[in-house]
Write a protein that binds this DNA or RNA. Structure first.
Lengths: 246, 246
DNA sequence: AAAGTGTATATTGTCAACAATATATCGAAT
DNA sequence: ATTCGATATATTGTTGACAATATACACTTT
């Protein structure tokens, strides 16, 4: 009997379909399964998730509010397209928020958490050594996530995560140069040193600068890509255009 | 014929019902027509707006993402309840974002915009002189809105506005003491001076401190209210409780 | 009177259907 | 061959309906 009861409890959904669809759609956008500008066909998505259009639309309204999805009246929902200028602005915000988080951490972080950050930095070194840019990217995200969780500041956490999510709308630059990774991880080291020293103002400055340096690295990587694209002028552009349905 | 065409265009809705309902609900929450904790009956709201439950639910999902509304499975939507700790965190975020905005303004603001800010400060002086706390509150909001618009930074604008909206979930302290209003406006003056001087770092610090000073004033006003409530212990509390349906 | 129990009502979460609008397809004209 | 226009299809925005769940109410028991 006890088992039946627990089964019944387990079977009873603890989440609305909207919440499930929303999480999955968000994931698909953030990891790039859905690309900026893609049209989101309600029926197709509903069918894919095994639900009706209602929950899908509700989920998309939430994602619209999170700036991940845009809408045109009578044309439906699209994965938001984001301009380089908007990306640059997001870096601005991330910088001030991350500065705040780091300053706060300097006076509150535990020895265990510091050790975990050190370990994460070591792992990133390994990724750099093996030239695994994708893995470095993943670890870097995890490092930042660790810090914002440790800061124990819900509002900052939420704001920062939302900004990170938005920035994923830009195509990921998987081709991370080793030199840039080294630079980035060196900044991590200096930041953690400041945290260990309990120097809030230094931590704020380093956190802030780390994000802005990330923007410089992003811009450099975009410039490089553009240069490569320019060296193969007519053919590549046309081929790319046909893929996107607009 | 031209008239018919323009009529047809005017008649054709330029917005979805969801967007209209969302704006109206947001307004009702922010101005306090709907109070924190209030249950949002879908049918009643749909009837009130002359639409069906679909658009109402979509609007609420968006507001949920904006942190204005919360949801409990099978119990529906509620105006979000916000704790003093959460309010305090929002002030933290507002402070760093407003600091950023002010720093940016220092190097970009036009003479006209500066004149408009001066005028707004004068108006606030008038409100203080007449002891009109509500009007001061309104003008203060408008002053901040002016500055964030001038900053011409979409991301900061959106982040800041969202934080302001959230903070409206806390019951407004209409009983603003004249001394606090004077203090607040003096901070406005110093800030605008820094903007005129083009001193970005000073502007950042003053913008930051102005928000944090606002938090101190808010806390003081809460403490005062609590003291008043404590002096009338049993009766008032019970009467208030019956009004709220839970 | 208070607490518990069972029934009726209300409300939500989800779905399916419909009208309005947009997109795609096809043929005719230049 | 392209452009234009008319028709057919697809998709959206919105509505009303239905089952599952929660709330309110009357009734019994202590």
């Amino acid at each position: 009997m006890t088992e039946n009861v627990s089964d019944a409890i387990a079977l009873r959904r603890a989440e609305s379909l909207t919440a499930i669809v929303q999480r999955e759609l968000e994931r698909m956008i953030v990891v790039g399964e859905l690309r900026a500008g893609d049209r989101l066909n309600e029926q197709a998505l509903a069918q894919r998730f095994g639900v009706s259009r209602g929950p899908v639309r509700e989920a998309m309204r939430a994602l619209e509010c999170a700036n991940l999805v845009s809408t045109r009246l009578n044309q439906g929902f699209f994965v938001r397209e984001i301009s380089p200028e908007e990306i640059a602005e997001i870096y601005d915000m991330r910088a001030v928020v991350y500065g705040f988080i780091c300053a706060r951490l300097a006076t509150t972080i535990s020895a265990e958490a510091l050790a975990a950050l050190d370990a994460a930095i070591e792992e990133m070194d390994t990724a750099i050594a093996t030239g695994d840019g994708k893995e470095y990217y993943r670890l870097n995200l995890a490092f930042h996530e660790q810090t914002i969780v440790c800061a124990a500041h819900n509002c900052a956490q939420q704001t920062y995560r939302s900004l990170i999510n938005e920035s994923h709308l830009a195509r990921q630059r998987s081709l991370v140069e080793p030199e840039r990774m080294r630079e980035s991880n060196a900044e991590h080291r200096r930041l953690v040193e400041a945290l260990k020293a309990g120097d809030a103002e230094l931590a704020r400055e380093l956190g802030n600068k780390h994000v802005l340096a990330g923007r410089r690295r992003w811009k450099a990587s975009v410039a490089e890509e553009d240069a490569i694209a320019a060296s193969v002028p007519p053919h590549g552009a046309a081929a790319g255009a046909t893929l996107v349905h607009k």
